[in-house]
Design a protein around this nucleic acid. Structure first.
Length: 289
DNA sequence: ATAGGCACCTGGTGGC
DNA sequence: TGCCACCAGGTGCCTA
């Protein structure tokens, strides 16, 4: 589920309850998610102050006063619930525990953060803060799309020898960090590129045009998430799942949103994932100039 | 080095 | 109501 914008929204939603606060109690209901939790995870979290909440790609990183960093990935179905928040941003009472609540953090300010993940594709680990970026899970990830590290020249270089479809290449976290199935579909729609086009066959001009489109799509989604945090204070305090309308994702059979286009959104399967696109606006061109 | 397919796991939906 | 097939926003690992 969560791609970069959702993870960023979760990070922002957690920050007021966690940053600068001590974890008074960490509870874990099972030994693992996708992988085993690190040894004595709860003990290593208890009593630590969360100095800073960061995000790298789809990972949330909580730097602790102990010199360790808690790495959190939400997988496909991971959710964060905030309750008992004295700031009143979320619900005050702690709700009854639910099925698939796997990790609970109680903070000194009374906030409780509950990590719920039915499919358990999520993960948590503890890293040495000083070397967190070189952790195997993070080391090979490409540039942050909203940072200056992400540039037209980078994307051209990263794609020029890729024979794989552009859809697959953008989904590859080594190309650029944080894109997932939804936002890749949305990006390709705005760029008028057919998802099956081989990356290396697309002109440099059109690859370069992807850079601002990727930034816009993600930035707009983050803003939608931010306003959902502010304006629609969720009754249940759940973070990261905001109303967002997509141009093509999940709209198979529905009309293309391009003004004047009478085609309907199509769906194909690429390496086991659904790609949604407009077969007219994103038709494969003879030349991708 | 690169690309494709499988695996992990649960839950929701729609058809019969 | 039950059963079944299929789908789901991620990504590491194995194989050619």
């Amino acid at each position: 589920m969560p791609e970069l914008p959702e993870v960023e929204t979760v990070r922002r939603g957690l920050a007021p309850s966690m940053e600068g606060q001590i974890i008074t109690r960490a509870q874990v209901d099972r030994p693992d998610l996708r992988w085993p939790f690190p040894d004595n995870m709860a003990d290593r979290l208890n009593g630590q102050r969360v100095e800073q909440l960061r995000r790298r790609s789809k990972y949330i990183l909580a730097d602790l006063s102990s010199g360790e960093t808690l790495l959190i990935h939400l997988g496909m179905s991971g959710r964060m619930l905030v309750s008992g928040d004295p700031l009143g941003q979320f619900v005050h009472d702690h709700p009854a525990p639910e099925k698939h609540d796997h990790v609970v953090f109680d903070m000194e300010n009374g906030a409780r953060i509950t990590f719920n993940d039915p499919r358990r594709f999520g993960a948590m680990d503890l890293l040495d803060t000083k070397t967190a970026e070189s952790h195997p899970l993070l080391a090979k990830i490409g540039p942050e799309p909203l940072s200056n590290d992400f540039s037209e020249s980078h994307l051209i270089e990263a794609l020029k020898s890729r024979r794989t479809p552009i859809k697959t290449a953008l989904l590859d976290q080594k190309t650029v960090a944080g894109l997932g199935n939804i936002y890749v579909c949305e990006v390709l729609f705005r760029a008028k590129l057919h998802p099956a086009t081989k990356a290396a066959e697309i002109s440099q001009r059109r690859i370069a045009a992807l850079v601002p489109i990727i930034r816009e799509v993600l930035q707009q989604a983050i803003e939608a998430g931010g306003s959902s945090l502010k304006d629609f204070r969720q009754a249940d305090g759940e973070l990261g799942y905001f109303q967002h309308s997509f141009d093509v994702y999940g709209r198979e059979g529905e009309p293309c949103k391009t003004p004047g286009c009478s085609a309907s959104v199509a769906r194909i399967s690429q390496s086991g994932r659904s790609s949604f696109f407009c077969p007219y606006c994103q038709r494969e061109l003879e030349t991708n100039l």
